[in-house]
Amino acid sequence: MTGTKVEILSMGEVKRTIRNRMSFLERPAPGWVTPLGILGLLVIWQAVSMTGLVSSGALPAPSEIVRDGWEMVRGGELWPELYASLVRIVLGFVIGACAGILIGIVLGISRLAEAVGLPVVNSLYPIPKIAILPLIMLWLGIGEISKVTVIAVGVAFPMIFNTYSGVRNADPLWVKAAVSFGAGRGDLIRKVILPGAWPTIFAGLRISIGTSLLLLVAAEMIAAEHGIGALILKYSNLMMTTRVMVGVVVLSILGLVFNRLLSFLERKCIPWKHA
């Protein structure tokens, strides 16, 4: 039989010890594996570049990216670009998230708003927001406002849906309990439905990070003097691939930092999910 260890004891007795047959599923991965994986990838990348199989014009080596990146940091070239991008994305994200949460709550608690608003939201949602970027620029000019607006619009939609479904899926038992203690409509929303919706709202914020980065870069590539997107476009036109890669790396770091920030906020705001 599998999973048993057979021992022949004296006096002709056989002992079969039962082993845990689930153990291969439960084996944990050691902590050093994660950094090693990333390091391994970088080493392979570096090795391939150094053999000359791939031209550094197409795929520069990690060492070159780090060198160029450091130069751009020390020379001060990166900061204005980063600053411009940060202002746009933070403003757009905050405005979009607030508006989305607000609209989502209204759609979730008012049957009238739901009947009128939900079909509208549903028909606007699938439009890729990049497609309406030219329109927004036509209406609001090519300045900062249109860039912030497109990010806000892109963030608002997933936030509307997540907030709405969080509000609608409030456990009827919580509602019953609150009403049985005499909670009115206002208290019900403030003390039961909103707190219950926070986890879904945070899930929406997480989705929105990717959307907001995408729209930031798109907007900056279409029309901007500064910003990481503009920087990437400029260097790709000059065929300076290494500097393009620096921009890409900065975007990836931005995404990671936002994610961390959100995790921190989430632990602060919904301690009952984590403690």
Partner: peptide
């Protein structure tokens, strides 16, 4: 039907708040 976002103390206080 306790509220998961409230501590035991705050849950017991709920009816008193109302």
């Amino acid at each position: 039907a306790l509220f998961p976002w409230r501590t035991v103390l705050k849950n017991v206080e709920f009816g008193l708040e109302e």
